[in-house]
């Protein structure tokens, strides 16, 4: 009987993590529902606070996804569970593929939840602003009130961009955290693997930031110029399209980089790392 080893690896990982992700989803759902119900109170201040709370929760959801994915990878590969995982009759390529797919699914779940919380947060935030401007004259100028629909549109574009990034860059983020953990389990570094994992991941973020800044500088000549587009709404529309193009390009770069990182991790697993 031919065994679907990749499916078995994903299934095994699912049984280990379903309770944690289930709890995460329940908490997110309760939070989202609670804040959504605040929308019926008609209190602008409460809506603003709820919106900001949801922004923070969206950030925490992404952070949770990254940290827990890395934690599970370390636990299953380099702690005592590793004695089982790394002696399974599968190639390192298959093992890493299974782990990456499982980790990506978890990361996608967290990213989608984060985007939903973000969308809900912004919705409540803008509702709060509109209510405050209605009942507290002077909160916003007439021009600012006129800009609100455009700001909503730009925010929606930002959330769309976050969603695209969350989906297409998920494998890259997962593999980057796996690489940090793998590097931290080479030789004597494994004695302080938590510290070195954070250091290596921090290094990756620095490199990412540098690449992003370089990317932006190179793309600046193609950015819409406000001077050429005196109509604000037209400018914002063009800016949205520019952001969408840049997002797709960065997702493509992330996917390509993922291939290189995958091959590096596989080599490290075959030659360098050990279960202590």
């Amino acid at each position: 009987m031919r065994r679907n080893m990749c499916g078995n690896l994903i299934r095994q990982e699912f049984w280990q993590v379903y309770k944690v992700y289930g709890g995460f989803l329940i908490i997110a759902a309760l939070l989202g529902t609670g804040c959504f119900l605040l929308g019926y109170t008609g209190n602008g201040t409460l809506l603003l606070v709820a919106g900001i709370l949801l922004f923070c929760c969206a950030l925490l959801a992404t952070l949770f996804g990254t940290v827990y994915t890395a934690f599970r990878y370390h636990r299953s590969m380099f702690s005592r569970e590793g004695y089982l995982t790394q002696t399974l009759p599968v190639s390192r390529t298959m093992l890493l593929t299974g782990k990456t797919l499982a980790g990506t699914m978890g990361m996608l779940l967290c990213s989608l939840t984060s985007c939903l919380l973000l969308a809900l947060g912004f919705s409540l935030f803008f509702q709060g602003i509109e209510l405050l401007s209605q009942y507290l004259p002077g909160t916003m100028t007439p021009q600012e009130i006129e800009m609100l629909p455009a700001m909503r549109g730009l925010t929606a574009a930002g959330i769309r961009s976050s969603l695209l990034t969350g989906v297409f860059c998920a494998p890259g983020h997962v593999l980057a955290s796996y690489l940090a953990v793998t590097l931290a389990n080479i030789g004597s570094l494994s004695r302080h693997h938590v510290l070195f994992s954070f250091l290596f991941y921090g290094g990756y973020l620095v490199v990412l930031q540098f690449m992003g800044s370089l990317f932006t500088v190179l793309a600046m000549p193609r950015m819409p110029d406000g001077a050429d587009l005196p109509q604000v709404f037209t400018y914002l529309e063009q800016l949205q399209k520019f952001v969408d193009r840049m997002t797709l390009l960065s997702c493509l770069c992330s996917l390509l980089a993922s291939v290189g990182i995958f091959l590096l991790i596989r080599w490290l697993l075959e030659k360098k790392t050990m279960v202590r």
Partner: peptide, 24 residues
């Protein structure tokens, strides 16, 4: 068992170096 790479010398289990087959 195939848990420690980076060794020197030769190890053969049923004619194979530690790999997917030996783990099976």
């Amino acid at each position: 068992a195939g848990l420690l790479p980076g060794y020197g010398g030769q190890v053969r289990i049923d004619g194979h170096a530690p790999d997917q087959y030996t783990r099976s």
